[in-house]
Design a binder for these strands. Structure first.
Lengths: 222, 222
DNA sequence: TAGTGGTCTAGACCACGAT
DNA sequence: TCGTGGTCTAGACCACTAC
């Protein structure tokens, strides 16, 4: 991103992509090609000056990547490259450790050893930010899958009317599926499903920073 | 929050809560007591000066509330109070429109009418940020439920080993449940479950801003 | 003590929607 | 045109971790 497209004219798109999003794109690429899980990124001040943006802007990009689970930030330590995802059964994308226009070459300390740092001490606040228009799903990298789906429509295969075979077009059933789930009664309990936010413990379990949105199922006995 | 505790000494807690989180707390209370769904909050510049913080700090609080689904922000329009949650089957908390030390009284325009503005135009970027230590779950307000749980452990009641009756203590099964789900094969398909980020369309379906983390199920045919 | 991420400020300019 | 949220800057101080 550097200085390109600083001039006004060129752009045809209504609104040029925000810097922090371009930055995210660059970083994603770097993560895919130049870093391995557990490695430490250059510090924020370094990166921001390297990319010619304010630290806050860089942090916006990092925030998003952390939200996406690609980074883990530790106060006093640094920003680490997180494990790819939640355990994927298929051969992961080659994790091309190969070459490419590398822009981020830097020190690459590996994580000491004991990872899974699920400490109990109350985590201090963190921030999250978000993404723009509609960048292609990063998951597209993997082998040729058929379709991606979101929480409700897919995680509940046994709920009537929620069977697989969905395509993006069909995913509008997501809501109706959730609704079905909400109407569900099992073992004499009744439950409600709503969107909530992961507290500390949940966040730890999900290996995501606290505050991320999750589906919350509340079970009620009478 | 205003100016209180500006002096240093008083605090006993190791790390004083960040301003933006205190602010969030105040706003949550205000949302619960002074506003109704669809109402418009005072604008950010107003609020920030009212609370004596920088706009960026106020925005951090609003970001979190948006992430939690309590607010919706519309460029050029304002910040609206969002619907409580994803449809709760139980009587909602009285939505106490009653009184309390109201701090936010202001203009309360109601939403015009046609809500559900699921436009197709690419939404411009938004930001998200996050929460601190471990504030009590807001859901605790409702009637006496038994337990809250997170995505994997609850939304998949039929997966072996994923039956209800969970308590917070048990919720450590969340991960193993997900793992089970990942091993699932239905209709000759195989699938992978991972944490991802909602793109535009998904975000629209879930009525959340793009970029929120979601469970992504990828189905593969061979 | 030095380096890192986390928070906060006070300003600025922009694109959007309504008027 | 004007008010709103969205982005960005350049700086500051803090708490945490390692040395």
């Amino acid at each position: 991103m550097g200085s390109t497209k600083a001039a006004s004219g060129t752009a045809v798109d209504t609104v040029p992509e925000p810097k922090y999003w371009q930055l995210r794109t660059v970083l994603v690429r770097a993560l895919d090609t130049e870093f391995r899980t557990g490695e430490v990124l250059p510090n924020e001040r370094d990166l921001s000056s390297r990319f010619g943006v304010a630290r806050a802007t860089l942090r916006q990009a990092l925030d998003q990547l952390e939200l996406e689970g690609r980074l883990v930030r530790r106060r006093g330590i640094g920003t680490l490259v997180a494990a790819p995802a939640w355990a994927c059964r298929w051969p992961r994308p080659p994790t091309t450790t190969s070459a490419l226009p590398g822009q981020l070459a830097g020190r690459r300390r590996r994580l000491p050893s004991g990872d899974r740092g699920g400490r109990d001490r109350a985590r201090p606040p963190r921030r999250h930010r978000r993404p723009p228009g509609a960048p292609a799903a990063d998951h597209a990298r993997h082998g040729h899958r058929h379709r991606d789906l979101y929480v409700p429509d897919s995680v509940v295969p046994h709920v009537p009317g929620a069977f697989i075979k969905h395509s993006l077009a069909e995913s509008s059933r997501a809501r109706s599926v959730l609704r079905t789930l909400q109407r569900l009664e099992l073992d004499g309990e009744s439950r409600a499903v709503e969107l909530g936010v992961a507290e500390d413990e949940a966040a730890r379990l999900l290996e995501r920073p606290p505050g991320i949105p999750v589906l919350v199922v509340t079970t009620s006995y009478r």
